[in-house]
Simulated assay, not measured.
Amino acid sequence: MAKELAAQAKEAFVDDDFDVAVDLYSKAIDLDPNCADFFADRAQAYIKLENFTEAVADAKKAIELDPSLTKAYLRKGTACMKLEEYRTAKTALEKGASIAPNESKFKKLIDECDLRISEEEKDLVQQPVKLDQTPPVPAEPSKPKFRHEYYQRPEEVVVTVFAKGIQKQNVNIDFGEQILSVVIDVPGEEAYHLQPRLFGKIVPEKCRYEVMSTKIEIRLAKAEIITWAALEHGKGPAVLPKPNVSTEVSMRPAYPSSKRVKDWDKLEAEVKKQEKDEKLEGDAALNKFFREIYSNADEDMRRAMSKSFVESNGTVLSTDWKEVGAKKIESTPPDGMELKKWEI
């Protein structure tokens, strides 16, 4: 019966009825969940429907069931390329090419991945962005079955899926360059999928998760120290974390200090001059002042500024990489101020 449904799905695919093909492949999978071909073929139908995250998940499942199935690697690579996950795509395509070295499609797609990766590296210089703060924002639930939320720190995003009593063996979580795939599949129940294309890129090997009695906590390691405007891609501009993301300085507003700039009165005077000259007020003048410093800095100075700013919780802004790169920068509030922990 499962093979008959798969045959009908192939006919629908040939007729460009991709929704029907997906539905028929899904019914075939329900009857035979261990058939790698069904998952690989449904992945192809998903690609035609431009449901690329679902295609990646199906191709990954097909590879788990049959690591020698070359079309699964091809479809995972194709879907990842559509999602601009070129390094992940290249890894899958190279594995498929090692199994089928005479298949020309692999070489063509690998060459395209190399080209795209090269272009990304050329555009890697980070543009100055304004200082701002985005507080923890709950994400919209993908399904009524389980609710999920997220909050972030400068170096990571923490996603929580509120699912009670789920066993670890029923949870499958995969990390891509800009993809999070969460599948909760409890026998006898409808599977839960959370598969967003993330707002920013992550470092998959540094990501981790933990299945608890009432929830699943997922920690995504950011590839860049920026504040995500949302969990999903394309929902707002990225910004650098504002001072006080994880700490709060009391008494009066504190401007980031520097190992080279210790005269706070002088720094404030310069900021006020900027406000007068440019007719800017408040944070606008301060943001312009630091953007100019960052835009005129060389690579080492920018690295020093980012590292000192984040590690000191916004109280130190140094441009000396030789000093900053050799140690962890401690929080150093200005004289007359005290450092208070930020309650999350």
Score class of each variant (00 low, 15 high):
Val186Ile: 15
Thr91Ile: 12
Val316Met: 11
Ser118Arg: 15
Glu190Gly: 00
Ser181Arg: 14
Lys222Ser: 01
His193Ala: 00
Phe162Cys: 01
His193Lys: 00
Thr134Cys: 06
Gln8Phe: 01
Asp66Tyr: 11
Glu120Trp: 09
Ala92Leu: 11
Glu224Trp: 04
His148Phe: 03
Ile29Pro: 08
Cys207Arg: 04
Ala79Pro: 06
Asn244Pro: 02
Ala9Leu: 05
Glu232Asn: 07
Asp37Asn: 15
Lys168Phe: 02
Ile173Asn: 00
Lys276His: 11
Glu84His: 07
Val14Lys: 15
Arg219Gln: 11
Glu275Pro: 06
Lys164Thr: 10
Arg116Gln: 15
Ala72Pro: 01
Glu119Met: 11
Asp185Gln: 09
Glu232Pro: 04
Ala191Ile: 03
Lys235Ser: 08
Ala45Leu: 00
Pro256Val: 13
Ile184Asn: 03
Lys222Leu: 00
Asn170Asp: 11
Ala79Ile: 07
Tyr255Asp: 12
Lys3Cys: 11
Glu84Asn: 08
Lys327Met: 11
Glu121Ala: 08
Pro253Gln: 08
Gly336His: 03
Glu50Ile: 01
Asp23His: 05
Ala2Asp: 15
Ala284Asp: 11
Tyr46Arg: 07
Ile216Asp: 04
Lys122Ala: 14
Pro135Val: 14
Gly234Gln: 08
Asp58His: 06
Lys341Arg: 09
Tyr294Asn: 00
Val157Glu: 00
Glu292Tyr: 09
Gly325Val: 11
Ile47Leu: 09
Trp264Phe: 12
Val310Gln: 03
Glu54Val: 00
Arg116Asn: 15
Asp37Gln: 15
Lys48Tyr: 04
Leu65Asp: 07
Gly282Gln: 06
Leu240Phe: 06
Phe38His: 07
Val324Pro: 10
Asn244Phe: 03
Trp342Ile: 13
Gly165His: 12
Ser181Asn: 13
Lys60Gln: 14
Ala45Ile: 12
Phe199Ala: 03
Leu280Ala: 08
Cys35Asp: 15
Val186Asn: 02
Ile110Tyr: 01
Asn172Ser: 12
Glu232Ala: 09
Gln167Leu: 15
Lys130Arg: 15
Ile216Asn: 02
Tyr192Arg: 01
Gly188Glu: 02
Gln127His: 00
Val20Met: 14
Leu267Lys: 00
Lys130Ile: 13
Lys145Ile: 01
Arg208Ser: 09
Lys95Arg: 14
Ala269Trp: 05
Pro154His: 06
Ser257Asn: 14
Ile99Val: 08
Asp263Trp: 01
Ala230Gly: 13
Met251Thr: 15
Ser295Phe: 02
Val211Arg: 04
Phe106Glu: 03
Ala191Ser: 12
Ile293Lys: 12
Lys130Asn: 13
Gly165Phe: 05
Lys262Phe: 07
Glu205Ala: 05
Gln167Arg: 10
Glu270Met: 13
Val14Trp: 02
Pro128Phe: 04
Lys322Ser: 12
Ser318Met: 09
Glu149Gly: 07
Asp30Gln: 11
Lys206Pro: 02
Ile63Val: 15
Trp264Ser: 10
Met305Glu: 07
Asn34Gly: 13
Pro204His: 04
Asn51Leu: 08
Ser312Leu: 06
Asn172Ile: 03
Arg153Asn: 05
Ala79Cys: 09
Leu83His: 10
Ser250Asn: 12
Phe106Thr: 08
Met337Asp: 05
Ala9Tyr: 01
Glu232Leu: 02
Ala297Phe: 03
Glu11Ala: 14
Thr214Ser: 10
Leu124Cys: 13
Lys130Pro: 08
Val324His: 04
Val261Ile: 10
Val159Thr: 09
Pro243Lys: 11
Leu286Cys: 12
Val159His: 06
Glu177Leu: 06
Gly336Asp: 02
Ile226Glu: 00
Phe289Ile: 07
